[in-house]
Computed example of a mutant assay.
Amino acid sequence: MSYRLVILTVCVVFGLLGLYTLQHTTQSRETFSSATLKMGSSGKDVYELQGRLKALGYFNGKVDGNFGDSTKNAVTWFQWKFGMKSDGIVGGKTKLKLWNATKDWKPTAEDLPPTTGGNNNTGEGTSSGGTDKLPASNNLGFTEKDLKFMANAVYGESRGEPYEGQVAVAAVIINRVKSPEFPNTATGVIFQPGAFTAVADGQIYLTPNDKAIKAVKDAMSGWDPSDGCLYYFNPDTATSKWIWTRPQYKTIGKHIFCR
């Protein structure tokens, strides 16, 4: 009887350990992909790596998405400080340790990859029109940087929505910039903690297509299909109970826009 109890106990312990490992591996993949990062690597994961290392004070270089000597030195230092093998190679163990050390980290505009050009690491979305040409009727003083990140946000939040709905999402960002209740810059609004799902789940990294860019330009030019709304949500996916308390004004596509 005691032998069976020992076997059962061992099985339970290993089962719980497996669940713990799976849970934490899943958490680490909420941001990083499963790719191993090392000298010569580049792309979104390296931006993420450099941004998190910089937040901890290990990396002082430019967040440029290129894994060079300075990034390797930062990784090696981090690994040594946290009792890991200091080889400068970022595998699953290092990613998990870094994620746990920077759970509250949020990317700023400087931590994000540039979105001009065609392809990106995910293979989603292309743009041939560029994001560097502001509309002639831009009377709110938006910059080319604002246009770029607004297009990223619109693409990440609403690329499956009708065009009017995409313009409305861009208009909500602009309405928040104009409102005293929110940050007074486009990037401040977009990267406000908890404000946009695309920032939380990483879709802000995707390269916007021409449709998303045009939607932002139309909103900058004064078109506001939301009629001044400050909020929107998808009732099929919304998890916030608070958003349901907002006065609902109109529905465009799958999004309900609120005052």
Rank of each mutant, 00 (worst) to 15 (best):
Y58T: 03
F59S: 01
G61E: 11
L112M: 15
Y47N: 07
S86N: 07
L112V: 11
G91K: 09
T94L: 06
E48Q: 13
R52A: 05
R52K: 13
T108P: 01
T71N: 06
D69Y: 14
E48R: 09
E48M: 12
P107L: 05
Y58Q: 00
I89Y: 04
T108G: 14
N66T: 12
L98M: 04
N60G: 12
W77D: 03
W99G: 00
S86F: 07
P107Y: 09
D111R: 10
L49F: 11
W105C: 00
N73C: 02
V75E: 03
V63K: 05
L98V: 03
N66M: 10
A101H: 08
D69W: 11
K93F: 15
L96C: 08
A109E: 09
G61I: 13
T108D: 10
D69A: 14
K85F: 10
A55K: 10
W99T: 15
A74R: 02
W80D: 00
W77S: 07
G88Q: 04
W105Q: 00
R52L: 00
T108I: 08
K81R: 10
K103Q: 12
G83L: 03
N66I: 14
M84S: 08
K72P: 01
W80G: 00
G61R: 05
K103V: 12
A74H: 06
G83T: 06
K103T: 14
G92F: 15
D87Q: 03
N73R: 13
G92L: 13
L53N: 04
M84Q: 15
W77Q: 02
W105F: 09
G65Y: 12
K95M: 15
K85R: 12
V63H: 05
K81L: 06
G88H: 09
N73S: 13
W99Q: 06
G92C: 12
F82N: 12
G91I: 14
D111C: 11
M84G: 08
D104V: 09
D87V: 01
V46H: 01
W80H: 04
K97T: 15
E110K: 13
L96D: 10
V46D: 00
V90R: 06
K54I: 06
N60I: 07
K62H: 12
P107F: 10
T76W: 05
R52E: 03
A55R: 09
K72Q: 12
G92Q: 15
K85Y: 11
K81S: 10
L49Q: 02
W77A: 03
G61F: 14
G88N: 04
E110M: 10
K95G: 10
Y47Q: 07
G83E: 05
L53H: 04
T94M: 07
K62V: 15
K81Q: 11
L96T: 13
T102Y: 06
G91T: 14
Y58P: 02
G57K: 04
D104G: 01
F59P: 03
L49T: 03
Q50A: 04
E48W: 12
K85D: 15
A55S: 15
